[in-house]
Simulated scan of single mutants.
Amino acid sequence: MRVTNQRFGREFWALWMATALSNLGDGLFKFVLPLLAVRLTDSPVLVAGVSSALTLPWLLFALPVGVVVDRLDRKRIMVVVNLIRTAAVGSLAFAQQFDWLTVFVLGFLAFLVGTCETVSDTTSGALVPSVVNHDRLEQANARIISAETIMNSFIGGPLGGYLLTIGLLLPAVGSAASFLAAAVALLLMRGHFTVERKQPAGCFGRRSLFMG
């Protein structure tokens, strides 16, 4: 799907909103994650391992994710991964409330959320050319990247600190709510966003190597 108007339309702003909300959720989760780990273990190695589990997927899956994104509906991918993050962070808050959370479960959830972040941010960038015209692509990319950086690095942490003064679980609850809101925002995007692929030519459709 590709837009034909010259302005940023509904699809772009829905994508921008979803990107901002999901990165706010990432920022809140990154803030609360080591605090929860410290409450579960006195081992600095385990605390560092939990934090590393959140970023490790970028190293492991950044390239494979690009291949997947080129083959599936990008809007659907983002909706699914945001729903997975909502469930993962929501279950973390639930487990913490009932004392079922262990440092290993926390590490697994961190790895799952980090994997979803890798998929979501990669897909978000790949979606931009489908919702804006080529002459506005640079401006659109700048807005998407700004939303990612500001919400993840500059708003998520301070907001997490404020919520923490009210209750330990509130940053996690806020993170889950942000992921859910991002999934809802994506539903405002109309149409499908799968890359169109040309059908491979048959043996009679290929040019002979011996022909110029």
Rank of each mutant, 00 (worst) to 15 (best):
G114T: 03
G107E: 05
G114V: 03
S153R: 13
A142R: 02
T102K: 12
A147L: 07
V131N: 04
M151P: 03
A126L: 03
V132A: 02
V113T: 03
L127T: 02
E138F: 08
A140M: 02
W100H: 11
V128Y: 04
T123V: 07
F104D: 10
S124K: 00
A95I: 06
L106V: 10
S120C: 05
R136H: 10
G125C: 01
V119W: 07
V113P: 01
F98K: 12
A147I: 05
N152C: 06
A140I: 01
I144E: 00
F98C: 06
L163D: 07
S146N: 05
S120Q: 09
T102A: 10
T118Q: 12
L101M: 15
L109V: 13
A147C: 07
A142F: 00
Q97M: 10
A142T: 02
T123G: 05
E138Q: 11
G157Q: 15
W100A: 09
Q139I: 09
T122D: 01
E148T: 06
V103H: 10
E138W: 02
E148P: 00
D135V: 05
A147E: 04
S130M: 14
E138N: 08
M151Y: 07
V103Y: 10
L164D: 04
F154I: 06
V128D: 01
V103K: 11
S130W: 08
S153Q: 13
Q96E: 15
G114A: 03
D121R: 09
G125K: 13
N152T: 11
P158M: 08
V128R: 04
L106H: 12
T102Q: 10
T165M: 13
E148Y: 07
V131I: 05
T165L: 14
E117R: 10
A140C: 04
M151H: 05
H134I: 11
L127I: 03
A110L: 03
E138S: 09
L159F: 14
T118D: 10
I144L: 06
T115P: 03
A126V: 01
D135N: 07
A110Q: 02
L159R: 12
T165Y: 11
F111A: 06
D121K: 09
